[in-house]
Design a protein around this nucleic acid. Structure first.
Length: 323
DNA sequence: AAGACGAAAGTGGTTGA
DNA sequence: TCAACAACTTTCGTCTT
C-alpha cells in the first residue's frame, strides 16, 4: 500500500513502533506510534487514534487482592511525578515483626518513636510539601489534557529541578506546575496553547505565561519556537480531514516559511488554521472557517487574514482542479 | 439561510526610550 | 514607567453561494 505520509513526517517517526491494531477509520494497517509525541497515528488516513495510550499497568490479570499480591513482582515504578519519586519506606502500623509475632513493651515503644519521626520527616520539609502538591497538580493537568506519561515525567523533572536547585521561591505552585506542563509540551513538539492549559488550571493565562518565561530563564532552556506544523496533525484530526489535506497543508506551511515576514511573529495556530483552510478547498474537502476557528482557538477573522496573506504572497491557485 | 468577507473599534502583550 | 506598535479579538453590516 502506498503510504500517503510525506517525507518530513517519516523522519519524525523514527521511533516507530507498530501497535497491534488496524485503523478503525479506514481499516489500514499502517498504524504507527510516534513515541516523541505520545500519539498513535494512522499514516493512511491521518486519524489520531489516541493521544495517550501508554499502558503502564501490569501485563497480567488478577481477580482477587491475594492474587494481585502474589503476582506483583515489584512496587510502583520510581517516578519523578511523585514527590518522593515513589521510593519512600513505610513503617507498618501493625505492632508485629516480620515473622508476625508481637513486640514486647520496649520494642513497641521504640517502633512508636520511629514511626512518629518517620511521619514527621517524610512530607514535612517545606520542599517535600511543595513537591507533593505540585506533582498532584501536574498529574491532574496532564490527565485533563490527555498528555502521555512521558510528558508528565518531563514536566515533573523540570519542576523538581527548579525547587531542588532552590531557583524558585515563594511562587504559585499551581502556576509553576502549569508552566512546567506547557514547557514540556513545547519541548516535545506537541504543543498545547497556554489557553488550553489555563482552561484546566486555577491560575490565569497571564500568570502561567509569566511563570513559564521565568522557568525558561532559570533553567536556561533553549525552547524550540512552536511552529505551525506541530499543530497541524491535531487540528486535521479534530476536523476529521483526510491525510491528503494534511500533506498539502504541510507543503503550504513549508513554502510560507521561506517568505519573509509571513510566519514569524504570527500566532502559529493562525498559520496552521489558514493553511488547513486553503488545503481543504484545494482538495475539495471544504470545512468552514468557523469549524477551523473552533478547533484551533483563533478567530475566523484571523484565519481570513492569514489565508489572504498566504494566497497572495505564495501566489496559490485555489481552484480544486489546480491540484 | 449559512458562510464568507471586511471595516472599525477594542484588548493585551512587547519593545524601546 | 510609559507610549507606540503589531497582532489579535469582537462586533456587525454586507455580499455570495
Amino acid at each position: 500500500m502506498a503510504s500517503n505520509i510525506d517525507e518530513t513526517k517519516k523522519d519524525e517517526i523514527k521511533t516507530i513502533e507498530t501497535p497491534d491494531q488496524s485503523c478503525p477509520e479506514c481499516g489500514g494497517f499502517d498504524v504507527v506510534r510516534d513515541k516523541a509525541k505520545g500519539e498513535v497515528i494512522c499514516t493512511t488516513c491521518g486519524l489520531v487514534l489516541s493521544d495517550h495510550r501508554i499502558d503502564t499497568g501490569p501485563e497480567w490479570r488478577a481477580f482477587t487482592s491475594d492474587e494481585r499480591n502474589s503476582r506483583a513482582r515489584t512496587g510502583a515504578p520510581a517516578s519523578y511525578a511523585l514527590h518522593d519519586k515513589g521510593l519512600s519506606t513505610m513503617i507498618d502500623w501493625r505492632d508485629r515483626d516480620s515473622k508476625g509475632s508481637t513486640f514486647n513493651a520496649r520494642q513497641r515503644a521504640q517502633i512508636y518513636r520511629l514511626r512518629k519521626w518517620q511521619i514527621r520527616t517524610r512530607v514535612h520539609s517545606s520542599l517535600d510539601r511543595n513537591l507533593a502538591q505540585a506533582m498532584t497538580e501536574i498529574d491532574r493537568l496532564s490527565s485533563q489534557l490527555g498528555l502521555s506519561h512521558g510528558m508528565r515525567e518531563h514536566a515533573a523533572r523540570m519542576y523538581r529541578k527548579l525547587i531542588v536547585g532552590r531557583l524558585w521561591r515563594s511562587r504559585s505552585i499551581d502556576a509553576t506546575a502549569a508552566a512546567a506542563v506547557y514547557a514540556a509540551c513545547r519541548r516535545r513538539g506537541s504543543p498545547r496553547s497556554i489557553e488550553e492549559i489555563a482552561e484546566h488550571s486555577r491560575e490565569s493565562k497571564k500568570k502561567i505565561a509569566a511563570h513559564y518565561r521565568m522557568l525558561v530563564t532559570k533553567l536556561k532552556l533553549r525552547m524550540p519556537i512552536s511552529s505551525p506544523e506541530n499543530y497541524v496533525s491535531r487540528f486535521i484530526s479534530d476536523l476529521s480531514l483526510p491525510a491528503e489535506v494534511q500533506r498539502i497543508t504541510m507543503d503550504i506551511i513549508k513554502k510560507a516559511k521561506q517568505v519573509r515576514n509571513l510566519v514569524s511573529g504570527r500566532d502559529p495556530r493562525g498559520i496552521a488554521a489558514a493553511a488547513i483552510y486553503i488545503a481543504s478547498i484545494m482538495t475539495d474537502n471544504r470545512v468552514t472557517q468557523r469549524d477551523i476557528s473552533r478547533v484551533s482557538g483563533v478567530t475566523e477573522v484571523t484565519i481570513r487574514n492569514r489565508y489572504k496573506e498566504l494566497v497572495s504572497r505564495l501566489e496559490l491557485t485555489m481552484a480544486p482542479a489546480a491540484i
